[in-house]
């Protein structure tokens, strides 16, 4: 039963990622694209965790942590760049 639920959930998260990519290409403004990227990395974390459950291993959590940290720093850096024109002043 868990296997079926896992497949459904993975399908839903992948569909969500596709919608994010749609927003990433459509824009219309730069903040929209950054927001789409931000959501995309959160979905990537969800996918990695689902993969971990599917394979029955916790090895992938380290990758999830890295994506969480790097994604946050990336979003903040891009938002700062849009606002000020430079990342580190």
């Amino acid at each position: 039963m868990i296997a079926i639920a896992l497949n459904i959930t993975i399908a839903m998260v992948v569909l969500a990622a596709v919608l994010n990519v749609y927003r990433l290409f459509k824009g219309p403004d730069a903040p929209d694209r950054v927001l789409a990227l931000d959501t995309l990395y959160i979905n990537a974390i969800a996918l990695i965790i689902l993969l971990g459950i599917t394979l029955g291993t916790r090895m992938y959590l380290e990758a999830a942590i890295l994506i969480a940290v790097m994604g946050f720093v990336g979003t903040v850096a891009m938002a700062k760049y849009l606002k000020r024109g430079s990342v580190i002043e």
């Binding site: 969500a16 990622a17 749609y22 927003r23 979905n43």
Partner: peptide
Amino acid sequence: GGAFTLVGAIGLA
């Protein structure tokens, strides 16, 4: 979890 993730993305789109 999957449903909320999907709804968030639908909202974004």
